[in-house]
Amino acid sequence: MSNPTLLKSSIGKKLLMSITGMFFVLFLLFHAAMNAVHIFSPEAYNEVCEFLGANWYALVGTSVIALGFIIHIAYGTILTIQNRKARGADRYDSEVRPASVEWASKNMFALGVIIFVGLILHLWMFWSKMQFAEIANIPLDAEIGASSYADGSSFIMYWFSKPWVVITYMVWLVAIWFHLTHGFWSMFQTMGLNNKTWMSRLRCLSDIIATIICVAFAAVIIAAFCMSL
């Protein structure tokens, strides 16, 4: 950033959260679309995996996504710590949550932690055995039975035949859904791109986008589980 004091201000830090958040929404939309291909054609899905395998552009993309995650998590943590301090040591004896306040909006950090844990699991299940294994020269996991590092379909079929994986992913998707329903409109608000007319539109759009993303991911998982039965 050209302005060093911007990132010291509360709004500057939040701007960084919203820019990285915006980036993740776009990433998730792409990821969900890419996964949805698997329902219709596992071969086509593998071609996408091949295209995004151990190539320099895919590696650059992965690095950018990783950097985005680090910024989003680091600033989210800094802001949460500051907010707890600003709230003070004394808590209210009784507190009422007004009906207009979304549950997700008050639990973004907790939801973020669940998403982060899910992400680690997800990276271990797929990325560490696919793109990472290929560049690090780690042999293919024989148990999964994939024909190559880019045989994403075999990975999907292997993992999502296990009920515990399906259930864990569903919990993860629910957390992502809640996080997105607040995060999506919230980033426009933080960037200052909101007013009385757009407030309800953006909130509605948040629910739509979060639902599209999560339903697409869930459909792939359920389809794979059903095929494995």
Binding site: K14, L79, Q82, R97, P98, V101, S105
Partner: peptide, 14 residues
Amino acid sequence: GFGNCTNTGACEAE
């Protein structure tokens, strides 16, 4: 030392 807004909207409601 005031905190950072997370757009909960609780302020507006109260």
